[in-house]
């Protein structure tokens, strides 16, 4: 008898998450001889994004892959993704979350009736502006910057003297166009397909965090599979995750060239500019819980 699982996520089917999810569905069918079927619902069409984690815990949907920041609402440890200036490159971040730290975050979900499956990657979190590039805190000072709710990122903006503005994603395009906000903190992989490149001028590649997705499943749904099916299922997840990692860097490069084509200036920090940001970042780290501080220390070594 065929088992059907609902996989709900909010990204467009064409985005890297959408493609990884579709590949995963294909692989599950292949490795379970069609005995497990994954129905993918992209674009947040099934449940509102803010509801995803709870809907999976409840069993209303079976598999979810929300932005890691959404997990902060049940486990503050997930804030580790958004510690400014902590990771040296998107590639290093991928290695970190493939290792012990990633496993710990996923294992913690068990207390919420969820089985953590994998961490999929998206892109680096950079600062974008409609005017001068945010190379130093001085430039950002006095600006209004849209950011998805995240304690460490909001704290970083405040420390630079900028006002962190929260605003629904659908309003950001207009807000940038009309000057309601002067910039955004997001990933190039989100900004490019959302066409924010049309209304933004600069991207500063200071690594404020890494965007990623926590893939999790209703624990009961997972247990409803036979041992054989579970094995095929997990194998599919492993391969889909590997594909995701292999694609991530390429996808970032593609998004950046898309932004460049729409006229965006891409700026890297000089060592001097980086030094100007470090005290602010360290102050943000100091505000974190002891558990996160321990993680920060591990990552820095």
């Amino acid at each position: 008898q065929e088992i059907v699982f609902k996989l709900a996520h909010e990204a467009p089917a064409t985005a890297i998450k959408g493609r990884t999810a579709d590949l995963f569905a294909e692989l599950v069918a292949k490795y379970t001889d069609g005995s497990v079927k994954i129905e993918v619902y992209p674009g947040g069409q099934l449940v509102p994004t803010v509801e995803e984690i709870r809907a999976a815990a409840r069993g209303q949907v079976d598999i979810i892959a929300p932005y890691t920041s959404y997990y902060s609402s049940i486990d503050p440890l997930w804030d580790i993704f958004y510690q400014p200036m902590l990771f040296s490159s998107p590639k290093q971040a991928m290695e970190v979350f493939s290792g012990e730290i990633g496993q710990k975050l996923l294992a913690n979900l068990e207390s919420r009736r969820l089985k953590g499956l994998a961490i999929w990657h998206d892109g680096p979190v950079y600062t974008f502006t409609t005017d001068k590039p945010a190379t130093t805190p001085d430039v950002l000072s006095g600006m209004k910057v849209r950011v998805a709710p995240s304690k460490p990122l909001e704290s970083m903006l405040s420390k630079a003297g900028a006002a962190p503005i929260s605003m629904p994603a659908t309003e950001v395009y207009l807000a940038l166009q009309q000057g309601t906000v002067d910039g955004v903190v997001t990933t190039p992989t989100y900004a490019a397909p959302a066409r924010w490149g049309e209304v933004l001028k600069t991207m500063t590649r200071a690594l404020w965090g890494v965007g990623g997705y926590g893939v999790a499943m209703n624990a009961k749904s997972f247990a409803s599979m036979s041992a054989e099916q579970q094995e095929g299922f997990l194998r599919a997840m492993k391969e889909a995750t590997e594909w995701n990692q292999a694609q991530t860097l390429e996808n970032i490069a593609k998004s950046e060239s898309m932004l460049k084509e729409s006229g965006m200036t891409i700026v890297d920090l000089t060592d001097e500019q980086k030094a100007a940001w470090m005290p602010l970042a360290e102050a943000v780290w100091a505000e974190q819980s002891d558990d996160i501080k321990a993680m920060i220390d591990t990552i820095r070594q």
């Binding site: 709870r54 959404y70 609402s73 049940i74 995240s150 304690k151």
Partner: peptide
């Protein structure tokens, strides 16, 4: 929700 213990994210 009491059991799940989630809260709004942000400040």
């Amino acid at each position: 929700s009491l059991l799940f213990g989630d809260h709004t994210t942000g400040t």
